[in-house]
Design a protein around this nucleic acid. Structure first.
Length: 100
DNA sequence: TTCCTGACGCTCG
DNA sequence: GCGAGCGCCAGGA
């Protein structure tokens, strides 16, 4: 799936531009790596909107292609995850060797 | 338009 | 080092 298709799907799901930016940044996180809510917010040009980032990730229409589980809290905690809870999030990260 | 809520962060005690 | 409170920004009703 290419970037154009992604954006198209995101638009069809009624996501705002900000939310799409957040999801696209999340998509750019390499396998085995993690990013914090704050980093994602900074990348979309709004360092203070880390809270809105969580809202955007929650709306993620493609949890399979968009690795929202790679976005964690600044203090190292995993944070929440709509695709199956923090437990599921942890399992996913472990399978990618993103965490121990 | 205004108010409330949320997958969070930072400071202060 | 830890917990409580306040602040932050975007979206939805």
């Amino acid at each position: 799936m290419n970037r154009k298709e992604m954006l198209s799907i995101l638009s069809e799901n009624g996501l705002t531009r900000f939310q799409k930016d957040v999801l696209m940044e999340t998509l750019s996180i390499p396998k085995g790596k993690t990013a914090t809510y704050k980093e994602i917010a900074a990348k979309v040009g709004k360092p203070g909107a880390y809270r809105a980032v969580g809202t955007a990730l929650k709306k993620n229409p493609l949890p399979i292609v968009i690795p929202c589980h790679r976005v964690i809290k600044t203090n190292g905690e995993l944070g929440n995850y709509s695709g199956g809870g923090t437990k599921r999030k942890k399992e996913l990260l472990k399978s990618e060797h993103a965490i121990l």
